[in-house]
Design a protein around this nucleic acid. Structure first.
Length: 266
DNA sequence: ATGGTAGGTTGCCTA
């Protein structure tokens, strides 16, 4: 195993996006793909055409809303569905597995709009639950990659118009603080680690108002890496091609590449 | 102030 690529993509309905997804998997060939917003139950997940491309699948589905999956060319082990910390939470927004020597999670963080609502409170609680889980994962031996739609714009330069987003749940100080708390644990924003000065590096453009053509986007899809994983970080690329195609998701994939682990000193 | 787009639903909810 020379290198390992990990992608995250909010597909906004796997049924509506199956053609686009298969096309992209064939051309980009990521080793691991973390998907969000499946909007389908486990039984309806299109396992067969994805397996034909060489992927194992771990799915945590839900009718109509949410739904996350992990695809991997390597075996998937110790699959865990749901984020601990709130027993009554029935939303399918988190799945975790061990594959290719990594602990990976596919994350669909709550949107949280409108600010001040129960939805916003749920988002902030969810961020705190994720912080607790992310801290636990640092205690294990395997390197960790937490990828997904975080629904958080980390900084002003991650947004085409910060003023327009000032009162949105994706850009509120509480949301950004929750995201930074993950970094303060010791995780690294893989894209930002390799592209510290880059602007207009967006992963989402609204369907409305020709936002993609005007490049009015935001960066809300992230892959966070633990220190042993970021040690191996070689590349982080936002692939805009899928966003420009017919029947596109409103998000586009982010792909990071890790080099092979450095051999231990004998 | 409003409505613009997309997806899942079947009268709206979510983004």
């Amino acid at each position: 195993m020379s290198s390992l690529s990990i992608a995250t993509w909010n597909v906004n309905s796997i049924k509506a996006r199956l053609g686009n997804l298969l096309e992209w998997l064939r051309e980009a060939r990521p080793d691991i793909a973390l998907l969000q917003e499946l909007k389908c139950v486990d039984e309806a997940f299109p396992q067969e055409p994805i397996a034909e491309l060489g992927y194992n699948c771990a799915v945590f589905g839900q009718k109509s809303y949410n739904g996350v999956a992990i695809l991997s060319r390597h075996p998937l082990e110790d699959v865990r569905r749901g984020l601990p910390g709130e027993e009554e939470d029935e939303q399918a927004r988190y799945i975790e597995a061990t594959t290719a020597g990594l602990r990976v999670a596919s994350i669909y963080l709550p949107n949280g709009n409108p600010v001040g609502s129960e939805k916003f409170a749920y988002k902030i609680r969810w961020l705190e639950r994720l912080r607790a889980r992310a801290a636990r994962l640092l205690e294990a031996d395997d390197p960790v990659a937490l990828g997904g739609d975080y629904n958080v714009i980390p900084e002003e330069r991650d947004c085409y118009d910060p003023a327009a987003w000032a009162d949105d749940a994706l850009f509120r100080p509480e949301s950004r603080r929750g995201f930074r708390a993950l970094l303060y644990l010791g995780y690294y924003d893989a894209f930002r680690a390799l592209h510290p000065g880059e602007k207009n590096a967006y992963t989402y453009w609204d369907y409305q108002g020709g936002a993609f053509q005007l490049d009015r986007g935001i960066r809300i899809d992230h892959i966070l890496l633990s220190p042993p994983a970021v040690d191996r970080l070689a590349e982080a690329v936002i692939d805009r091609k899928p966003r420009g195609r017919p029947k596109a998701s409103d998000h586009t994939p982010l792909v990071v590449t890790l080099e092979a682990p450095v051999a231990a000193i004998p």
